[in-house]
């Protein structure tokens, strides 16, 4: 069976855009709760609309991912590495949907109006409930930490493919790489690891 050796160009564009946005959101998030300076207010004003934009992009991205089979992982990768790659990718997809939804839900439960900019308000998705707010707010924090850890592992793995194994996995997600197509010997439904947030390195 013939599959592409690289991700769909739109998938690659989304990947790198979202990589930047999500990393920015993690830093904006901890930055704003860690300061009493005016940064707190303007970071919070960016955080909400950007978070909801990520939700939209994540839905788009998942739709593409479910419709188009991604390039396969190299056949000689150890099983545990393939397993980790798949598990971490689904965790990343889960978190990029869950984080904005939890943010939205917790602000609803806290009784806050959810303003995107000065005039535009999105509706609450949960009734006001302080206990629910507390649980969701804690989830927003600890899942953010899990998100960062997963991303760190993902960056490490991508660089491992790019620098140590040099097996084309990184190239499959890199921007500006032309899709050459390749014949797959192995159609085990193995997926290709996605590359990450670090700049592509020429090999």
């Amino acid at each position: 069976m013939t599959t592409s050796a690289t991700f769909h160009p739109l998938a690659r564009l989304l990947h790198w855009t979202m990589a930047l946005l999500i990393l920015a959101m993690l830093f904006i998030g901890v930055g704003m709760v860690g300061t009493v300076s005016p940064k707190h207010s303007w970071l919070l004003a960016i955080h909400r609309p950007l978070g909801l934009a990520i939700l939209l992009l994540a839905v788009m991205r998942l739709t593409i991912r479910l419709r188009r089979r991604p390039p396969a992982l190299p056949g000689d990768m150890p099983r545990w590495q393939c397993y980790l790659a798949h598990a971490s990718h689904w965790l990343l997809y889960g978190l990029m949907l869950a984080m904005p939804l939890i943010g939205w839900a917790m602000q609803s439960a806290g009784g806050y109006p959810i303003m995107l900019g000065d005039a535009w308000r999105v509706p609450a998705i949960l009734p006001e409930n302080a206990a629910l707010f507390a649980w969701l707010r804690e989830a927003h924090r600890y899942l953010a930490y899990l998100f960062l850890l997963t991303i760190l592992g993902h960056v490490g793995a991508a660089l491992y493919h790019a620098l140590i194994r040099r097996d084309g996995v990184f190239q499959s997600m890199a921007l500006g790489v032309r899709d050459r197509g390749r014949v797959e010997e192995d159609t085990d439904l193995v997926e290709e690891a996605e590359a990450t947030t670090s700049p592509p390195r020429p090999e």
Partner: peptide
């Protein structure tokens, strides 16, 4: 690379 990202996060968090 991985270490710097982690350190930057910890720094921003205070």
């Amino acid at each position: 690379t991985v270490g710097l990202l982690a350190a930057a996060f910890a720094y921003v968090a205070g």
